[in-house]
Computed example of a mutant assay.
Amino acid sequence: MTRSSAEALLEPHIPIQRGSRRPHLVEETGAATTTRRVPGLAGGQRILVVDSDADGAQSLVCRLRRHGHEARSVERGSVALHAYEDVDLVLLDLELPDLDGLEVCRAIRSVSSVPVIVVTARGSELDCVLGLQAGADDYVVKPYGFRELMARIEAVMRRAQVQPPAAKEISHGPLRIDVNSREVSLDGRRINLTRKEFDLLHLLASHPDTVISRKRLLQQVWGDSWSRRTVDTHVSSLRSKLGGSGWVVTVRGVGFKLGNG
């Protein structure tokens, strides 16, 4: 069984030859462009534009900068999966040269709460549903009006402002999970986990009183591209490394939840 291509990533950014494609934006006419500030948001946001259309992406970056944001662009999904950690918002196209944008969105959402707005030419209802199910906070179809995009950015960032920051360390009895270093210890002893084992434990520990369904685990940890057996195998391995089945409790017919060892 092969890994999801979003896991294999992490390749250096290879610029793509700029070409001529239709513009992303519907130009607003008859009104001067002005900078709007959102109450409660201090200054501009750090925005990452992920789009293989280099000319269109650069045009959007320039307009975002004129509105006070710190914006930059990348053309490949693999590069975005390195760059999103340093930004406040991701504007993500689904048509990328190396990875499908839905896969990129799922990969980001499995480990981060950074807001993601899908900005794409895929305009069907099904595409929108799939984008939101992949973890996007909003969905904008090209071509779009720039003022509409700005309003959606403001709305998404307002919602993000009121959410509590993600915990840097999760403690559950003798179990310690350092989110930044991705290290786990039990009774002071370091537990060496694979990437997916850590993601699985982190998801369960982030919702200690909640039963997480198999479907949700597959979607958030594996991008919904693996089988039911994958969850069972990783749960078994995780239990073995933690020293018993009590840390990952099976709720028959529903899913799993974090136990007490």
Results as ranks from 00 to 15, higher is better:
E7S: 12
A8I: 12
A8H: 12
E11N: 05
E11Y: 12
H13Y: 11
I14Q: 15
R18H: 04
G19A: 11
S20K: 14
R21S: 13
R21F: 12
R22E: 14
H24T: 02
L25Y: 05
L25C: 07
E28D: 14
A32D: 12
A32H: 09
T33K: 11
T33V: 11
T33N: 15
T35M: 13
T35Q: 10
R36K: 13
R36E: 13
V38W: 01
V38S: 10
P39T: 09
P39W: 11
G40I: 06
G40K: 07
L41D: 03
L41Q: 14
L41F: 09
G43H: 09
G43K: 08
I47E: 13
I47T: 10
L48E: 10
V49A: 12
V50W: 04
D53Y: 00
A54P: 02
A54M: 06
G56P: 00
A57Y: 12
Q58N: 14
S59Y: 10
S59H: 14
L60Y: 06
L60E: 09
C62P: 02
L64C: 02
R65P: 09
R65A: 06
R66F: 08
H67P: 00
G68H: 05
G68E: 06
G68V: 05
H69I: 03
H69T: 03
A71V: 00
R72K: 12
R72V: 02
S73P: 09
S73R: 13
R76E: 07
G77E: 01
G77M: 01
S78G: 13
S78W: 01
S78F: 03
V79W: 05
V79L: 02
A80S: 08
L81Y: 03
A83K: 10
A83L: 10
Y84V: 03
V87W: 03
V87D: 00
D88G: 08
L89K: 12
V90S: 05
V90M: 09
D93A: 08
D93E: 10
L94Y: 06
E95V: 11
L96S: 06
L96F: 02
P97L: 00
D100G: 13
G101T: 06
G101L: 01
L102V: 04
L102F: 10
E103D: 15
E103L: 06
V104D: 03
V104Y: 00
V104K: 00
R106Q: 15
I108A: 01
R109W: 00
R109D: 00
S110Q: 12
P115I: 09
P115Q: 11
P115F: 05
V116S: 04
I117L: 13
I117M: 03
I117D: 04
V118G: 03
V118K: 04
V119K: 04
T120I: 01
T120L: 02
A121G: 14
A121W: 04
A121M: 09
G123S: 12
G123L: 02
E125A: 12
L126I: 13
L126V: 14
D127L: 05
D127V: 02
C128Q: 13
C128V: 11
C128N: 07
V129I: 14
L130Q: 15
G131K: 02
L132K: 04
Q133H: 07
Q133E: 15
Q133M: 10
